[in-house]
Design a protein around this nucleic acid. Structure first.
Lengths: 170, 170
DNA sequence: TTTTATGCAAATCGTTTGCATAGAA
DNA sequence: TTCTATGCAAACGATTTGCATAAAA
């Protein structure tokens, strides 16, 4: 069940430049808060919530309001630079969008660690199933919840390990 | 990629009896509103939202409040008789729990139709992927979004076709 | 009678929005 | 100068909760 797809690893600087370009294209203004929010977002390569982003940005630039973070995150989404995710907890999380392929998530129910993966065999099966039922798929969402090795070993008290971010091709 | 798993089709009456048993076991009281809400829920074999359930119950028994519907739905969930789902729209939807196997969802983005399906091959692949990444899966969520045949044909204006409910084994 | 359930309205949580003001072009 | 962006607080929609009252055991 292999796969390939080379990962196009845009650097933070490249993403930031893409953001600035997107602003220009849309005749939107560059502001210090937009820049700071975007920079923090691009620097943080995880699934970040608006509140987390707000707190991080606040440390860099205390002159940002909650609403602006929401507005900027929406902007990043509309520019195709951020993807919105909803896991079991109530709040939305945003991740950096690579030009790479779609991926799914494996989530540890104990420590919250999120591992990304992609699997072509499953995607093919999904297409088949949908076709059989008369559907044409435009997108999908697959989330596997369970326990990671570390948490199963009992070692980690409640380790909010987080940090992880390369897509595992399986 | 076939599968089998005979479906244990509990009747509405059986589910209702199970609900009453669950109340007794927990020393909770049987009330007319609980009964009515449960009955309507068991009769409606789709993915129903709290608001829809509230409206339906209201027609049978106008003496029910919104909060009671929420509380009863939570109760049904805790008794293992209802499963909570979150699709792209903001509100939670609840479905009857059969003792049968897990299933996933295929959702038409135009008419909202929800088709259930199950596929063992995919489940096996999921286990493999998780194992390779050190995880043990406890549950998963897979949703395929797209367009159903009817909506693709252009015939149906915006047909909220709904109604559908047997799990397709593929 | 004791104890739990109900209805209502108020509270909460994440998110969005109106509006007067600050700031970019 | 002109026009958009910001911050704040208020408005939101879905869901939960406090509390006095009603109903079940």
């Amino acid at each position: 069940m292999g796969s390939s797809t080379a990962v196009s690893h845009r650097t933070q600087a490249q993403r930031f430049a893409a953001f600035k370009d997107a602003l220009r294209e849309r005749s939107l203004k560059s502001t210090s808060q937009r820049d700071d929010i975007a920079r923090v977002f691009f620097a943080n390569d995880q699934h970040i919530s608006v509140e987390e982003l707000y707190r991080e940005v606040k440390r860099v630039n205390p002159r940002v309001g909650y609403a602006t973070v929401y507005r900027t995150v929406r902007l990043l989404r509309e520019c195709g630079l951020a993807a919105e995710r909803h896991f079991h907890d109530g709040e939305a999380r945003f991740e950096n969008v690579e030009e790479e392929h779609h991926h799914d998530h494996l989530i540890c129910e104990r420590c919250g660690r999120i591992v990304e993966f992609a699997n072509d065999a499953i995607e093919r099966l999904q297409e088949q199933i949908a076709a059989r039922l008369g559907f044409v798929i435009t997108r999908h969402k697959m989330e596997l919840y369970g326990l990671c090795a570390e948490c199963r070993s009992g070692r980690t008290p409640h380790a909010a390990a987080k940090r992880e971010s390369r897509v595992s091709r399986t």
